[in-house]
Amino acid sequence: MAAKSMTIVMHANDLDKTMAAFILATGAAAKGMDVTIFFTFWGLMAMKKGAADKSKLSKFSMFTGMMKKVMKKQNVATLDELIKDSADLGVRMVACEMTMALMNTPKESLRPEVTEIGGVGTYLDAASESNITLFI
């Protein structure tokens, strides 16, 4: 497989979904793919500083703590670690400009791994050149 590209819209803020997005992003980057993640709505809230550790499961959220303990026991990377790894592997992370305005989320409130701000056109330009596009 020659290097290809993947674009993800991350719309969710739930731990199980954000984990899935970043596992896919790091996996694709490890295979030499160009990866772009566009964070919109709740997905952008997941990228606020300090949010990764507070993220909860989409179902049975009262068991989030228990799930985190099992993940740790199984040596599964934390969401925070996967976000840092994504940046290390060159994953491009774009914040939705409209969500930033709607939810009063200035650039300074976002994690440093989010280095770009863009709109629907930014996503479409990346997605139209991607072999894989996902909405999570």
């Binding site: 490890a30 295979k31 990377a77 592997l89």
Partner: peptide, 14 residues
């Protein structure tokens, strides 16, 4: 050793 998916892949690529 001991790491779970996808960390072995990530560490290899890093």
């Amino acid at each position: 050793v001991g790491l779970n998916c996808p960390k072995p892949l990530i560490e290899t690529r890093k």
